[in-house]
């Protein structure tokens, strides 16, 4: 079984992102970048499938600027076999990413695509579902459990209020939720080995897809700030305030 794992370079999740002073976009100058956390879970799941003998090859792919090579190397250090960078403008829209990934699918013919449910920059939660639509393949989003059984996959999904299990025919697209697994860290020897693994580069303009942007960012602002309230001294005072001042209970 061959697995394709699309990943994304995003701002590290510990960074507090702020708007630029002219509010034209977010300020990403000199901030630490990382592999999107949900993509790390996708890589981990693919690597576990290879370790258990289910998968034979894992290909990491990303759509972005040449800086994204850094994140592909991380994926290689974590256990992916080779990587593909589709060079594009910085931060293309999910629909463009999905169209580019569909082209890679056609070239590579993987049995399974595992990707993060959302990137923590745009918080769109779209790419996996869009890719499924373009390829006319089944989708199993927000997965917390994945079991491959022959030519099908049983996937348990995190839904509002509980869990849903569905069965999808392969090839299928699976998007990861938080509890699917706990990603490992790359070891130093594996980081060194990853430098020798194959990393191919393609230009998005050579894929024959429509790459035009459909949306524009008008402005980016801080959300309205909530004023801090008061500290109460005791449970009695808290109950009194909730009953008589806030009238919340």
């Amino acid at each position: 079984m061959k697995i394709l794992v699309p990943i994304k370079r995003v701002v590290d999740y510990n960074v507090k992102v702020r708007p630029l002073s002219d509010n034209s976009n977010v300020d990403l100058n000199n901030v630490k970048m990382a592999v999107n956390p949900f993509c790390e879970i996708a890589v981990e799941e693919a690597v576990r499938l290879k370790e258990s003998g289910t998968a034979t090859e894992i290909i990491a792919v990303t759509v972005g600027t040449s800086a994204s090579q850094e994140q592909l190397r991380t994926a290689l250090a974590l256990g992916c076999d080779r990587a593909i960078l589709i060079e594009s403008v910085d931060n293309p829209e999910p629909l463009v990413i999905a169209k580019a990934l569909a082209k890679i699918f056609e070239e590579e013919n993987p049995d399974l695509i595992i990707l993060g449910k959302q990137a923590i920059d745009g918080d769109n939660n779209q790419t996996g579902q869009m890719l499924s639509a373009i390829l006319d393949l089944p989708q199993a989003t927000f997965a917390s459990k994945l079991a491959i059984e022959g030519q099908t996959a049983n996937v348990t999904r995190e839904i509002d209020g509980g869990l849903q299990t569905i069965k999808v025919n392969l090839p299928a697209i699976v998007t990861t939720d938080l509890r699917l697994n706990e990603p490992r860290y790359a070891s130093l020897p594996n980081i060194m080995k990853a430098k020798k693994k194959e990393l191919a580069t393609k230009n998005i303009n050579d894929l024959g897809i429509d790459t035009s942007a459909r949306t524009e960012i008008i402005s980016v602002e801080l959300p309205p700030q909530r004023e801090a309230g008061i500290k109460v001294e005791s449970v009695d005072e808290l109950v009194d305030k909730l009953k008589n001042e806030a009238k919340a209970i």
């Binding site: 701002v11 507090k16 992102v17 702020r18 708007p19 977010v26 923590i120 920059d121 745009g122 918080d123 949306t215 524009e216 960012i217 008008i218 402005s219 980016v220 602002e221 801080l222 959300p223």
Partner: peptide, 10 residues
């Protein structure tokens, strides 16, 4: 966007 750190007008 960014976990609610910023609000984008799109």
């Amino acid at each position: 966007i960014y976990a609610g750190s910023c609000i984008a007008t799109v």
